Computed example of a mutant assay.
Amino acid sequence: MLRVCAMLGVIGMTTLVMADPPAAPAETDLDRLQGSWMPLQCEVEGKGQMPDKLKEQVRVVFDKNEYHLYFKDSKLGKDGKPIVLRLALASVTLDATANPKTIQFEFADGQLKGKKCHGIYELAGNQLRMCYGSAEKPKPTKFESPAGSGYFVETWVRFEKK
């Protein structure tokens, strides 16, 4: 009996060693967002909001489920380095199973502290497109920001992957 158990143990161990290793978990949209992004386009209620010079000074960094909005001032600090201000900090929640995919921001710092925004998003290659507005308004269903809607439509391009 001991021999049979030993053989079964060896067969079991051989099967474990020969079996394929477990597959790595699939990359989620949140994983794909990680890193630094720069704006390509930003509009509010159908009107452009960010001149090209300003686009060069703005960055969004996704760090895990946090959204950090930064502005690099054209002035230099006492140390001779550019002054970088964090304008906002928000937690981000995604629902990649919704159609269209949805995003929610809950601001923890900055002028929007305590506010929530919700909207839709699309990730395509190195571009992120979002349409969002205040959580007090209906969630947008299209990438449009008509007059009076209070919706933002933004397109970001990956600047640096984390």
Rank of each mutant, 00 (worst) to 15 (best):
M1I: 01
L2K: 13
L2H: 12
R3H: 08
C5F: 14
C5A: 14
A6Y: 11
A6R: 11
L8E: 07
L8I: 05
L8A: 13
G9M: 08
I11D: 01
I11W: 15
G12Q: 09
M13T: 10
M13G: 08
T14I: 12
V17A: 14
V17C: 13
P21S: 13
P22M: 00
P25I: 00
A26I: 12
A26K: 14
A26C: 07
E27H: 13
T28M: 06
L30I: 10
D31S: 08
R32L: 11
W37Q: 00
W37H: 00
P39C: 10
L40N: 04
E43I: 09
V44G: 00
E45A: 11
G46M: 04
G46Q: 02
G46H: 06
K47A: 08
K47F: 13
G48P: 15
G48K: 08
M50T: 00
D52K: 10
L54G: 00
L54P: 01
L54N: 01
E56Q: 14
E56N: 10
E56F: 11
V58H: 10
R59L: 01
R59P: 03
V61L: 07
F62H: 03
K64P: 03
E66R: 15
E66C: 14
Y67N: 01
L69I: 01
L69Q: 07
Y70P: 01
F71H: 10
F71S: 02
D73P: 05
L76S: 05
L76N: 05
G77I: 05
G80P: 11
K81P: 13
P82M: 04
I83W: 12
V84A: 09
L85T: 00
L89P: 10
A90Q: 02
A90F: 06
A90Y: 05
T93L: 15
T97K: 15
N99E: 09
N99W: 09
P100K: 06
P100Q: 03
T102Q: 12
T102F: 11
T102N: 08
F105Q: 01
E106T: 13
F107A: 08
F107I: 07
F107P: 03
G110K: 07
G110F: 13
Q111G: 15
Q111H: 14
K113E: 09
G114Q: 08
K115M: 15
K115N: 12
C117K: 14
H118F: 06
H118Y: 04
H118P: 03
G119T: 02
G119A: 06
E122T: 09
A124Q: 12
G125F: 11
N126S: 13
Q127V: 06
Q127S: 12
L128D: 00
R129S: 09
M130G: 02
M130A: 04
G133M: 05
G133N: 12
S134Y: 07
S134C: 05
A135G: 04
A135I: 03
E136G: 15
K137F: 09
K139F: 04
P140Q: 04
P140K: 05
P140M: 04
K142R: 08
K142M: 10
F143A: 01
P146A: 09
A147Q: 10
G148V: 13
S149T: 09
G150R: 08
F152W: 15
V153M: 04
T155P: 07
V157T: 03
R158D: 01
K161N: 02
